[in-house]
Computed example of a mutant assay.
Amino acid sequence: MSFPAPLRGVVPPVITPLTPAGEVDTASLRRLVGHLIGAGAHGLFLLGSSGEAAYLTDAQRRTVLETAVDAVAGRVPVLAGIIETTTPRVLDRAADAVRAGADALVATAPFYARTHPAETVAHFRRVRAAAGLPLFAYDIPAAVHTKLPREAVLGLAADGTLAGLKDSSGDEGSLRRLLVDPRRTTSGLSVLTGSELTVDAALLAGADGVVPGLGNVDPRGYVRLYTAARAGDWTAARAEQDRLAALFALTEAGDPARMGPNSSALGAFKTAAHLLGLIDCPATAAPQIPLDEQDVARVRAHLTQARLL
């Protein structure tokens, strides 16, 4: 499909349903994709952090992309995560995404070793030149240990390397400075926030949209928030954001004494999707620790309080 420039709206980072044996559950993935599009999502981001890309084999990643692209059937843009440690490995994943029919690519800075900004810039340019699809930079220093410099992002947007940025840096000041920089407007860079809890503020500051992990659970809530913001109804946008912030507490359902925050958050997203009938199994990829019955009960309580169950 023709890729919109700039990309705007709600673009959920789709979770990857797995079977109890740890294989990709393609039937559940198709059902989830249909649900997200039916809820009004403006695009889908496959194989991001919420999609457990780092835990999947190359073959599983290909299965996810091929299944999702087929299920989407051109209704919304499909952004494919090509997150890998080094440029050659990213180029391999980019080739897979192109063959699968993705509409755009999403890449982080290389992250096996810390990279100099000049190396990061060269990395994105090589990926864009080789793949030929619109490229989004994924700024997530908590995972890759590199914060993308604002000047580098603006330069890559100006020369046509980057079509957009998914900002999951947690640096609200840096994001605000990027949004108000005239060079960002001139280049047409799409800026999507990855922070589920401050979407209204990001949209008010000029962000183009949001990539919310919680959007797997309540996509309609984020679409309502975005629609209200676009209409200038900031009271409604704030009310929806407050409701979603309360629901986001389900990511803390896991007991921190026995699991890390990633296991808790992804386990909660998948458990919620399972309770809502969107996927058949809430399994997360090894070595993440699954939620127990008490954790699941906490997720259920949050869904009930949010009137999703």
Rank of each mutant, 00 (worst) to 15 (best):
2 S>I: 06
6 P>R: 00
7 L>N: 07
7 L>W: 00
9 G>A: 01
11 V>Y: 03
11 V>R: 00
12 P>N: 06
25 D>C: 12
26 T>D: 15
32 L>F: 10
33 V>W: 06
36 L>Q: 01
37 I>T: 03
41 A>W: 02
42 H>R: 02
52 E>C: 07
55 Y>C: 15
57 T>K: 05
62 R>I: 07
65 L>H: 01
65 L>K: 02
74 G>F: 08
75 R>D: 00
75 R>H: 01
76 V>M: 02
76 V>G: 08
77 P>V: 06
78 V>A: 11
78 V>S: 08
78 V>T: 12
79 L>I: 13
83 I>R: 06
86 T>R: 07
87 T>L: 09
92 D>W: 05
96 D>G: 14
97 A>V: 06
98 V>Y: 12
104 A>T: 03
108 T>H: 05
111 F>T: 00
121 V>E: 15
124 F>Y: 07
127 V>S: 11
131 A>W: 05
132 G>W: 06
132 G>N: 10
133 L>E: 11
134 P>Q: 09
134 P>N: 06
136 F>Q: 07
142 A>W: 01
144 V>Y: 09
145 H>L: 10
145 H>I: 04
154 L>H: 01
155 G>K: 01
155 G>H: 10
166 K>Q: 11
171 D>P: 06
171 D>S: 09
173 G>R: 04
175 L>G: 02
177 R>G: 14
177 R>V: 08
177 R>K: 08
182 P>E: 05
185 T>G: 14
191 V>K: 04
194 G>D: 12
199 V>Q: 05
205 A>P: 11
207 A>T: 03
209 G>D: 13
216 N>D: 05
226 Y>M: 04
227 T>Q: 04
231 A>C: 07
232 G>Q: 06
237 A>N: 13
238 R>A: 11
239 A>R: 09
240 E>I: 00
242 D>Y: 04
246 A>D: 00
251 T>L: 05
251 T>G: 05
251 T>E: 12
253 A>V: 10
255 D>M: 04
258 R>S: 13
259 M>T: 03
259 M>F: 01
260 G>V: 03
261 P>Y: 03
266 L>G: 14
266 L>I: 15
269 F>G: 12
269 F>D: 13
271 T>D: 15
272 A>W: 04
274 H>F: 14
275 L>G: 08
277 G>S: 02
287 P>E: 10
292 D>R: 03
298 R>A: 03
299 V>E: 06
300 R>H: 13
306 A>I: 01
306 A>W: 03
306 A>Q: 01
